[in-house]
Structure formats: structure tokens, C-alpha cells
Computed example of a mutant assay.
Amino acid sequence: MSFSLIPRGVYPAVTHISPKALAEKGVRLVLADLDNTLVPYRVTEPSRAVRQWRDALAAEGIALFLLSNSRKPGRPHSFAQKLDIPCIGHAGKPKREGFFRAMERMGVTPDQTVMVGDQIFTDVLGANRSGVTPLLVKPIRLAGNPGRYIRYAVETPFRLLGRWRPFV
């Protein structure tokens, strides 16, 4: 398992990641972060675009699974229920345990799994440490927490390097 902060591609949004291209690479499971990846912070309903992306994944035989570090009680599970997908909240990313629990639950291996997230130090690092392919998306919205601006600024070199390594 690798200690790498470099993603396999940087995408404008989850909906720019082609389910067909993922299926052609042998992907059977997409682990997805919640906040700033699928929806902005505090948004409780999946958008039509996210629902359509989930349906397109399913049509290719790929399961979508919510893997969130959210500390808000019930938020990840409530959102996952609205999308009718499985979920692990308080996943502890970048620790590997949440990734392995999700893959075991879905009966897949790391080489059949990708992680889609907006953060280098949780989503990308955790995926790389678990042998899962990390796909990075632009954060939906940075507004609100000044710490996010600092964190994303520190992540900039890794985001730039990731652009040269697209997976799909």
C-alpha cells in the first residue's frame, strides 16, 4: 500500500467521471465522499445530476457507496438513504479500515474500486493507502470555513500533479 498524495486525475465534478469508462477499467465499486464532492456542505438532498450519475453507474454494473468522515449525527446515513446506496459514516479517512469495510461489504477488491473525493489528505491518501484508485474532484464550494482555503492551498501541488495522471 502506497503513501501517496497524488490522485489519478482531477475532474471538475463527479458527473464528469464516465461510468462507461470506469466499467471498461474493471471498476465495480465507487466509494464517494459526501461534503463538497456529491453536494455542498449542509445540503441534504441529492441533486438530479447526482441521481442520474448513480443510475448510470448502476447501468454499468457499478455500485455507488458513500464513505464519509462527516461528524454530523445521521447526515451521511440520511443522505445515502435518499440515494438508496450503502454508507459508512465516521469512516476515519485516511485510515484504511473504512475502505476495507466498504469493499468487504460489497464483495470487491481494491483493484475493482475507486474513491472519488475532494480532499488530498483524507480521500486521496486513504485510497492510496488502501490500494484503491483515487479520483479527485474540484470542491463544490469553499465558502464558510477559512481553514478550507488553507488546506486546499496546501493541496495545490498534488492537484496539479494529478492532472497529468488521468484514470478515465
Rank of each mutant, 00 (worst) to 15 (best):
D55C: 09
A32T: 12
V27P: 01
K25P: 02
E45V: 13
S68I: 04
R48L: 11
V27Q: 01
S18I: 12
V50G: 02
I85C: 13
P86G: 06
S70Q: 06
A21T: 14
K95F: 09
R96H: 09
L64C: 13
K82C: 04
F79L: 10
E97D: 13
A63K: 05
N36P: 10
P86T: 03
T44Y: 15
R28L: 09
E97T: 15
A58N: 09
P73V: 04
V27E: 00
R48F: 05
Q81R: 11
W53M: 07
A56F: 14
K95I: 07
L64Q: 08
L29H: 03
D33T: 12
T37N: 05
L29P: 01
L34K: 00
A59M: 12
R71K: 14
P73A: 06
N69H: 10
F65W: 06
I85L: 14
N69Q: 13
P86C: 05
L38Q: 04
G92R: 00
I62A: 07
A59W: 13
G26V: 07
W53N: 00
L38R: 02
D55P: 07
I88G: 01
I17V: 15
Q52P: 02
L57Q: 04
R96V: 13
I88L: 11
V27I: 14
R48C: 08
F65R: 02
G61Y: 06
L57T: 01
V43E: 05
L31K: 02
Q81W: 15
A63P: 04
P40L: 09
T37C: 13
R42G: 02
F79G: 01
R96L: 10
A63D: 12
G74T: 03
A59T: 15
P94D: 04
L66R: 01
P94V: 05
V27N: 00
K72W: 03
Y41A: 08
L34A: 05
D84G: 04
E60C: 12
R71I: 14
R28S: 05
A32I: 09
L31C: 06
G92N: 03
